[in-house]
Computed example of a mutant assay.
Amino acid sequence: MKRTGTATLPLHGGKAPRWLFEKMTLLSGQIIEALCIEFGPQEVLRRISDPYWFQCLGSVVGFDWHSSGLTTTLTGAIKVALKDRSKELGLFVAGGKGKTSRKTPQEIINACEETGLDGTCLVETSRLVAKVDQAALQDGYNLYHHFFVFTSDGNWAVVQQGMCEEDSTARRYHWLSEEVRSFVLEPHSGVSGQRPSEGLNLVHRESLQAQKVITELASRPPDENMRELQTILEGQGDLFMPKRHVIFPKEDIRSEKLRSVFVRTYERQAEDFQTLLGLEKVGGKTLRALSLIAELVYG
């Protein structure tokens, strides 16, 4: 799949006043409607997936602060504006900020009942897009917002956002399904803003071998992985890890929980990295642990 870009914004608290949100809802709804009439719903996906156009839309409808709140407020306004017009326009939305983002799967299923689309497929797409930016690409930003918009013919776009508490910034990620590529091989077409000095990027082309090794390790008996991981945490021997791998402290690991995930991956025997990434409970900590084991075992 294609991620079309990112935007890095200052992280601000609070929320937009009610009067502003109501105006944003009215204006954004009219703009989206005009785009659907003039160019079709697919063009709306293209526009929303452009981080610059999205930022401009937020300013045009009244949110003229260059902060993290533009993302959550604008997508919320669009969702309200399209609530009773989705079927008419052929454009459906799901998700949002915090707890609302967890309702995304059910909201997709509900919308698909009206369109006849395969809701299960779109739900899996939504989950996998979120996992790529949260677990496979660990750049210091934890996702707290996920907005999924799709057309009646199954095309989709995603706008999701994460926060970095250390430097009080938020990063917005934009995705578009128009160009179908691999989820786990450089799915991002552009990145803007400053990157953290350290991170783990398992979807980079240079990580192909790491993906293969991690998938193989995940299929091993769980006790083997736990022994290797314990060796790393206890610092036995003269082991020096390269800078590209962030070594997390002992308190970051809950051994029993991690072992239960290894049991799950052993039972499932994922055939490739994308399948492994899609497994329930396989998140950032699991992939970091497997990355460290891969470095220890294979160098």
Rank of each mutant, 00 (worst) to 15 (best):
S101H: 06
G95K: 01
E124A: 11
E165H: 12
P105M: 05
Q138R: 14
C164K: 13
L74Q: 02
H145S: 07
A111H: 11
R102M: 13
E88N: 11
Q138C: 11
Y141W: 12
L128Q: 13
A81E: 03
F148V: 05
G162A: 06
A81N: 07
F147Y: 09
R85P: 07
G69S: 10
K99N: 10
L122M: 07
I109Q: 14
E113R: 13
L122W: 00
G116P: 01
L91I: 05
V123E: 02
C164V: 03
I108W: 02
T120M: 10
T75L: 02
L89Q: 02
Q161L: 04
R127S: 11
Q138P: 03
F150Y: 10
F147N: 02
D133H: 13
H146G: 02
K87P: 08
D153E: 02
G116N: 04
I108C: 08
H145G: 05
G96M: 00
A157N: 08
T120Y: 01
L122G: 09
M163E: 06
N142R: 15
E124G: 12
C164W: 07
T72Y: 13
F147P: 00
E114Y: 13
I109S: 13
S68D: 03
E88Y: 00
S168W: 10
T75N: 05
E114R: 10
T115H: 01
S168E: 08
T100S: 06
D139I: 15
K103I: 03
A130P: 03
E124N: 14
T71I: 10
T104S: 09
D118A: 13
E107M: 03
G162M: 03
L128N: 13
V93I: 08
V123P: 03
T73M: 15
S168P: 03
K83W: 12
G76W: 02
T120H: 05
E166W: 15
A130T: 15
V149P: 09
K99G: 10
G96A: 01
V80W: 12
S168Y: 13
T120F: 02
